[in-house]
Each structure stands twice: as C-alpha cells, then as structure tokens.
C-alpha cells in the first residue's frame, strides 16, 4: 500500500521510489542496515514526515500523505517508536487511557484497559508512574498504548532494541499474539532471530531502495542481501 514513495532531506534521498504492500492479517518485517530509510518509512506512514512524491494508501480510499498525524491515528494506524515513548508523568493506567484514543467513549475504557493490561502483563504495575518503569516495561507499555486503540495497522519500530533475551522472547510471543485477520503489522528490526520468529514476509531496504521482498529464508539466501549485510 506504499506506492513509489520518495523522501528527500536536502539533496539526500532517504527513500527513493519505495513501494510495498502489507496485507491485513500479515506480520511484515522491514530490515536493512543503518541509514536504509526504515525509520523514515514509518515517519511517512505515520505522518511525521511528508514525502516529496508518492502515496501511502490505507485500504483503497485514504491517502495518508494528505493527513495530519492525529487524523492518521484516528484512521486506525498506531506506531510504537524506537525509543520507548511513554508519558513519564502519568501512571500506567493513565497512559493506557490516553492510548485508547479520543474516539472511545469513557464507559468503554476500563474494560479495554483491563484487557490490554492482561496482554502486556503489567497488571500489578497499574498505578505506577510510567517514568519509573524499567526499560522493558516501558516497551511493553508503549505496545499496550498502541494496542488500546485496536489499530488496523500497527507500526513497530525496533520493539526489542535494548531488551534482554528473555524479554525479547516475551515480546516476540506478544507480537505473534497480536496477529489478527483484520490487522496488519509492520515491524522494523535488526535482530534476525527475532524477525524470523515473528514475520510472515520480509522487505529488505538498502540506501532508500527496496532490495528484496519475500520470505525470511529467501532473504538469507539472496546474494545481494548477504552482500549488504555482511559484505563490507
């Protein structure tokens, strides 16, 4: 659903005619070395950066490049940032309440919050200020915040960066559990093992262009991908 996207910062092209389609029910991983344009891609989808050209279609009617961040979010797109972005001055519960989004009526919130708390496993920490959570807990809280709105498209930017092995495994299980027929999940990640564990398909970006698209196993066998990751 991303179509011929180009993003330039000055003369530098962060994305150069990138196209990719993510289907509902799919977990897609985008991998690539540093500077490949992965985060820029998410920035464009979530409306933080405006592209020079190209479209990002959600369904077949909504062009996200024409919308503000808030409108994109209300259309059902949620993004988890690379650095855990929770609201430190609010409690876990209050963070999740805000995560429910402006559209959900107040009556429906407690039930939604309770179910998300169960999914991310922060039940005992509900009244703790988010600023005092451990790093892994913040990652999960942020995933919970983006889940609370029941998004149709979930964007995860390096959800296991800086996590321990057991936390990574926990997160992988969490993401697999999030897969639903009416939801597409786009994950950006460095950790190949993690990607293999969660992704249905992978897209490899390199220097702003699509290098490979297909299964993880195929990617491991692709000569260009190997060269980009290991060659230099």
């Amino acid at each position: 659903m991303v179509d011929a996207l180009t993003v330039a910062f000055g003369r530098f092209k962060a994305l150069d005619s990138v196209s990719l389609a993510v289907d509902s029910g799919e977990v897609r991983a985008v991998i690539g070395p540093n500077g490949a344009g992965k985060t820029t891609l998410l920035d464009v989808i979530s409306g933080i950066t405006k592209p020079v050209s190209g479209r990002v279609m959600l369904g077949d009617r909504i062009d996200l490049t024409q919308r503000s961040e808030a409108e994109i979010a209300r259309a059902g797109v949620r993004r988890k940032f690379q650095k855990p972005s929770v609201f430190p001055a609010l409690t876990v519960r209050e963070n999740l309440e805000i995560g429910c989004g402006p559209a959900l009526p107040a009556r429906a919130r407690p039930a939604r919050i309770a179910s998300v708390l169960g999914e991310i496993g922060l039940g005992p920490r509900t009244e703790v200020l988010a600023g005092s959570l451990a790093h892994g807990e913040k990652q999960w809280l942020e995933i919970g915040m983006v889940l609370a709105a029941e998004p149709a498209l979930l964007l995860l930017d390096e959800p296991v960066a800086g996590l321990s092995d057991s936390e990574t495994a926990h997160t992988a299980a969490l993401i697999r559990a999030l897969r639903r027929p009416d939801r597409a999940i786009l994950v950006i990640e460095h950790d190949m093992g993690f990607v293999e564990a969660i992704a249905d398909r992978v897209t490899v970006l390199h220097e702003g262009r699509t290098l490979y698209e297909g299964s993880m196993a195929g990617a491991r066998g692709d000569a260009r991908v190997i060269e980009v990751f290991l060659g230099r």
Binding site: G47, I48, R78, S85, F87, A89, E97, I98, P102
Partner: peptide
C-alpha cells in the same frame, strides 16, 4: 492528563490520535 502527555511528548500524543 492530556496536557501532561502533550508537554512530555507531543508527537507521541498526536500519533495516538489527539
């Protein structure tokens, strides 16, 4: 609560639909 959220991370709050 939304004010505090906006103060600490405005982009985050916007990408949650506010």
């Amino acid at each position: 609560r939304r004010m505090l959220a906006c103060r600490d991370d405005e982009t985050r709050l916007r990408t949650l639909g506010y």
